[in-house]
Design a protein around this nucleic acid. Structure first.
Lengths: 212, 212, 212, 212
DNA sequence: TATGAATGAGTTTTCATTCAT
DNA sequence: AATGAATGAAAACTCATTCAT
């Protein structure tokens, strides 16, 4: 094939794009480097010019997402026109949108073949999100809107239990309530954990379906 | 090699044992079927006489753990000499012990190489634990010890966030409190989520370090 | 499984039956001994009690067919109430019926996966059929109905080219005539090879569609 | 092993050559891919770089032969300095030579272990040869040298019964005539099938032993 | 930067066959 | 006559990675 020279950053980025597509479609293990290069339209060697190994692209894929999340949340956290409550609503809204834009990434990352992405995410998200989230809770405590002795741990629980994305049912459809009720439950739990006034999140605009 | 005939159940069980050991030691992907049979001391074919594929032993390994957990929790749940609070303390105690007995299974299942076990567990545990746990919360609500409109969802959050095993730090050591404080935080959150009287779990004996 | 004792001949025959079914369905190589015993409902070892090897059942399968053909043709050949012409018509009729009864065995034995059966047949049929067929041709020559210096070779050509089963088209549908025409062509060729009077086979009742 | 880079076409061709050698020597099933690469002197992976599967080389082997036959026959068919009779003599001569050059390929392809090659050939040859051969017969009919209503079918019978290579005896040595007589019989049959003047092929030079 | 031919260790799996019971 | 657990060699194929160009 004729050799196509491109801006290295573009090329790198292009490879990450395609890799992500394929990882999600077929799973990381099931995606061969040859699949990636075929779809990108470059030679096998080109891949290794840009990445030391297959694992490294996986990291790049994850990193890019984490980075997007970080930037999004930091932007919200930095705004001084928002109260702690509003920032948390902002976080939630941002994450719901982030997830939807990626075709419910956080949902189907639970499928067997996505074990690798899943774990990488699960390990990478807390270090990025907890400090930001915890800081806002702390601020909320100062503002006397929240009331907890454990702001950081609260952040961890809320993130970890995916309360902000309370969507999965684990095959418990008959047992759990419907989406609406699960959403309300999530808000209730967050309010309780944070020691906030019941109903305050709704007051501040966190309403299911209007999030985006 | 000389042929050793064994009771099929024993043999099967023996293979599962060794497989688990190796999966945890080297990771699922990194464990070859040949590693397993070598350690068990049987021929390659024997493995495939008992399991259709490598994946099937993984399932058997997981299933066995899940089954143990199920039996343990069901036993506690069935006791009518215990109040809801005591049962939850019992659950927590059981799981902490289960985890320690397996060399902190739930901790180091988070390592990269254990992505498969991790995800399988994460998907298999809720369907088994939520109904049991939720039922007890419901009972507690009836007993007026708990107060929540969302018992099942509460169960899900508590399980999912691993509040009963509040051990991991995700590299946030400087930010989160120490083990003692995290443990207290966990109890605080559970009490809040369930709408229980603050401090009630400690009263009923859930004290870190004395669990076992 | 409980042990079922059967008449050895029945059991043997039963194994051959099932083996044939499977060989035709999946191909010889693709049929595992374990497939056979599973379908028969006996243990793996039982198979080897009756047959030394997998190849031996294949032979048994072929032999049984060849034997049926031999008996069928010999019966016809032995009748002294039939002329040479009538016997050849009888042969043809017998083989067409034989083939149909076995779901067009000779047709789909050409599929890739049936390479083994195919070749075994192709090698086993001439030694059985040529002598019988050739003998009749010789008789026909004596009767002055046929006229050829090469009765045995004629037999070989007719058998080999499957003129008596002139059905396959080898993907030449556009080029060859339809079934009717191919049938007529076959008769024409046989008559010419044998030096018989044109049309004599039709006179003696060899008509397509009425063969059975 | 040191890495030798070659022109891909050469390499491919080299693999096909060796594969054919081994297939004929040991049989297709009995030849492992590892045998092939060992003999070629490349890595296992190199084989799979060029061929998707073992079966695909088999096809390549067959295709190459079929292609050679096609070219050979087409060349003869295209010559307008030859009469129909001469072309048929040419075909026969070409095939006899082709067979001899390949150490009687068509003979020992009947051995059990060559079932695959055998069947593949048997299925691949008619589509290539019948149209060419039939066309010439048609021309012969126009030239009034042949006389048959079924030129295509005649071609099929002659090819199928391997009349042009009337060599095999199927263990019927005592019953069939010797090679000379079989050769004469074959010519007799062809002449009869085509409705040609007896002896015409000899006149035109088709004489056993002088063919090459 | 980019190519793509070449590598080769490594893996799962299959299966005919054996043999103690 | 029959069982079925056990064997183990063999085989096809994968794929991340390298490297000469």
């Amino acid at each position: 094939m004729s050799r196509t020279v491109k801006n290295p950053d573009e090329r790198r980025s292009e490879i990450i794009d395609i890799a992500e597509e394929l990882f999600l479609e077929k799973g990381y293990e099931q995606t061969a480097v040859s699949d990636i290069v075929k779809k990108v339209g470059v030679a096998q060697g080109t891949f290794y010019y840009y990445f030391k190994s297959k694992g490294e692209v996986l990291n790049a894929v994850i990193d890019r997402h984490i980075e997007e999340i970080r930037v999004g949340l930091e932007t919200i956290a930095a705004r001084d026109d928002l109260s702690a409550i509003e920032k948390i609503v902002g976080f939630s809204t941002f994450l719901l949108k982030f997830n939807k834009d990626r075709k419910n990434l956080f949902d189907y990352i639970h499928e067997d073949r996505n074990a690798h992405l899943h774990l990488k995410f699960e390990n990478a998200i807390p270090p990025v999100m907890i400090p930001l989230f915890g800081q806002i809770i702390k601020a909320g405590v100062s503002e006397r809107i929240f009331n907890t002795k454990y702001p950081m741990e609260a952040a961890l629980v809320i993130i970890n239990s995916k309360l902000v994305l309370f969507e999965r049912t684990y095959g418990l459809e008959g047992i759990l309530g419907g989406p609406e009720e699960r959403f309300n439950a999530a808000i209730d739990f967050i309010e309780r954990i944070l020691g906030a006034k019941p109903g305050i999140f709704k007051e501040y605009g966190l309403i299911r379906g209007r999030e985006l």
